[in-house]
Design a protein around this nucleic acid. Structure first.
Length: 436
DNA sequence: TTTTGAGTTGTTCGA
DNA sequence: GTCGAACAACTCAAA
């Protein structure tokens, strides 16, 4: 039986400039391209989850491209271990290639697959693809990780200097794919339905990147953001492409956002426990009020604070929220309502199309004050001030909260001044003598 | 080892 | 309306 190589797609759903795919195709073996809908993950999601639908559509898209050569993806549903056991029985597999994924769940999963393959005499090769620098590539001179952004970004840029971005022209080697007769499942086969929300295409126009610093803070400017988040998340856009364009403009702001993404990924790599525990342990002593009714109002966008409500309604309706507004709603939940940042993190995880565990956990901890490089706890966003500064013409608010200036609009669930004072005293007491 | 300057994104108060 | 200080004190990073 002819020896095959398997390439396992995960968060890198593209045929071009794909590092792991390129290495797999270069073996000279026939390459079986697979994707596994992981039942352990999918079972936790709603049947109309927009991310699953997006993945499904992207797989269909890739299949269309492959169909030109009579090729297609082999798509499975189940536990990855079980799928690989089946594949090992069906084919003579020499090696498995994939791109590295750094989230704690993925690391555990991949370790277990590695073990299974090793037991069967199959090599397992992983590549760096979803970041420019990973793991311990950007560390202090003494080898320990940075926990402050600015020096991290300086070192990141220093390491980039004078180096061409890697390019992996996997698209030129697609003729090496194997032909097979695995049936492509329907969406219903994997227990899902078309989602009411679609992932919008991204924009990386030079103009946008150049204006980014000036426009990015204004949520009413829908053209002010690139919407590359979900595409970086699922790999439908190569991060190298994004960095190439950002560097070409010479503007720092947009590039810094990409570096923030890697900063938080690196933090999660070194401190995986921060998914559930505060980076600064003392912050886990804060007695969160966790009022469920208030939390519900926050989720639904009915707090009586227009910019908070607009943000939450935008999220619920589109799976997206403007970044400036994310800060405002997060600060409001943690500080005005004194609700545990983990509650907010979980809600965002469920709704954001661009959900990225590292960034989400990192930014929520930043908002709560408990994270790396966090703001001082007395820095409490005033929703009215934020509204005045960033949506002075009320365009964003009117769009999502049409009743905001009418008598029918819900009364604020907390008084700003009182909530602020309560937050300050609560934090102060919990952190006394120890601001670790 | 010690020192020094800095640290994503704010708000409030009083002069 | 504008401006600077206060809001805490600590940790980090690099020299």
């Amino acid at each position: 039986m002819e020896k095959w190589t398997v390439f396992w797609f995960r968060r890198d759903l593209r045929l071009q400039d794909n590092a792991g795919l390129y290495h797999a195709l270069q073996t000279g073996n026939r390459v079986l391209p697979i994707f596994i809908f992981d039942s352990a993950i999918l079972e936790q999601l709603e049947a109309h989850d927009a991310r699953v639908y997006f993945i499904y559509q992207q797989l269909e898209q890739m299949n269309k491209l492959l169909a030109a050569n009579n090729q297609q993806l082999a798509v499975f549903y189940g536990k990855p271990e079980a799928v690989f056991e089946q594949l090992l029985q069906n084919h003579a597999i020499e090696s498995v290639y994939t791109n590295r994924d750094y989230e704690p769940y993925a690391r555990k999963r991949d370790a277990s697959i590695h073990q299974l393959l090793e037991k069967n005499g199959v090599s397992f090769y992983t590549s760096k693809d979803q970041v420019i620098f990973e793991k311990k590539e950007v560390v202090k001179d003494d080898g320990t990780p940075y926990v402050v952004f600015t020096p991290f970004s300086k070192k990141w840029k220093l390491l980039r200097q004078g180096n061409a971005l890697a390019h992996y022209p996997s698209e030129n080697l697609l003729h090496q794919m194997a032909t097979h007769d695995y049936q492509f499942p329907t969406l219903a086969d994997i227990g899902f339905q078309p989602a009411p929300i679609l992932v919008p295409p991204y924009s990386l126009q030079q103009q946008l990147i150049e204006n980014h610093e000036a426009t990015r803070n204004f949520p009413a400017l829908s053209n002010g953001t690139s919407r590359i988040g979900p595409h970086l998340r699922f790999g439908t856009l190569s991060v190298r492409e994004a960095v190439r364009l950002a560097e070409a403009t010479g503007k720092e702001t947009f590039l810094n956002e990409l570096i923030w993404r890697e900063f938080f990924m690196q933090i999660l790599w070194h401190f995986p426990h921060t998914t559930t525990q505060s980076f600064k342990p003392a912050y886990d002593r804060i007695p969160w009020r966790n009022n469920e009714e208030q939390f519900e109002r926050w989720c639904q966008g009915k707090t009586g604070y227009a910019i908070v409500d607009a943000g939450m309604r935008e999220l619920n309706a589109t799976g997206h929220m403007h970044n400036r507004v994310r800060m405002v709603v997060a600060s409001f939940l943690c500080k005005h309502l004194l609700i545990d940042w983990r509650w907010g993190e979980t809600y965002f995880a469920k709704h954001l199309l661009d959900y990225e565990q590292a960034s989400n956990v990192g930014n929520w901890q930043w908002a709560a004050g408990s994270g790396v490089d966090a703001a001082p706890y007395f820095r409490i966003f005033n929703p009215m001030e934020q509204q005045k500064k960033f949506d002075n013409l009320h365009q964003y608010i009117k769009k999502w909260v049409p009743e905001w200036d009418k008598a029918s609009y819900v009364k604020p669930i907390v008084d700003h001044k009182e909530a602020r004072a309560l937050c300050l005293s609560t934090y102060k007491m919990a952190l006394e003598n120890n601001t670790m």
